[in-house]
Design a protein around this nucleic acid. Structure first.
Lengths: 123, 123
DNA sequence: AGTTTAATTAACTCACTAGTTAATTAACTT
DNA sequence: AAGTTAATTAACTAGTGAGTTAATTAAACT
């Protein structure tokens, strides 16, 4: 796991980190802000480590404000990840189409019911 | 890492597995087909393991053909992953907009050059 | 100067990941 | 029935990930 895209996906593969990104999408936040919802589940250093993962992936950057280190969401790597997945769009859209076709068939069958299996048609 | 989205992102966080998905997007393939490009770098059982990861994430399914076990790409989980990232679209689009604004400013500055910094205008 | 706040670093543990080779299963071929 | 092909399972190892507590750094407050 050494390339940028792998680091991005690996960073996204954790619910705590995803929740932090959601929080950051609402605006900058300090470590304490980000940690607050998780302090029942984990310690502050654990949060710092999650932030390190997000930073190494380029999803988040820090700035400085006295002893605070506000974090900010960076969109670029998210866009790269989205672009990679995007290339498969037709895969799920085509199975959606097939589902649509199937539903149409079922509908049609209901409207013109046939007596036996003999009359089952294939579009 | 227990939920579906985490498993999906974790599965995508490896270049070998992403390459396998690219191959599968071109159509069904057997384990040997999928392994072939990687056999200089890793063994067949390693490939089987990568496939297990993709299957546990629901990205790939198997079928049966004699002793072959052809794999097929399933789009649904990819769509879920894309949908999750999609919620951040405005993050990168707004920074793109800011870049656009900046470039416009630079352009404008070139067209109507000023003498000193006194005349530097903001938007 | 001493204390509090904000965050990180150090050192350690445990579980999981990614790989290995060797053995096994399952189905087809001769 | 014996051999080949296709793939998986078993057993193991090295490295990494996610967490812990304790100690440390850095800046602000009194």
């Amino acid at each position: 796991m050494d390339d940028s895209l792998s680091r991005t996906f690996a960073a996204l593969a954790d619910p705590t980190r995803r929740a932090m990104l959601v929080r950051l999408s609402k605006g900058e936040a300090t470590v304490n802000d980000l940690a607050e919802p998780f302090l029942k589940e984990m310690s502050l250093p654990a949060v710092t480590k999650h932030l390190k993962v997000l930073e190494r992936a380029g999803l988040v950057t820090q700035s400085k404000d006295a002893q605070r280190r506000p974090r900010k969401l960076e969109g670029e790597r998210l866009k790269h990840a989205l672009d990679w997945i995007e290339q498969y769009r037709e895969i799920w859209e085509e199975s959606f189409d097939r589902l649509g076709e199937y539903l149409k068939t079922v509908q049609a069958a209901k409207k013109t019911p046939t007596k036996g299996k003999k009359n089952g048609r294939k579009r």
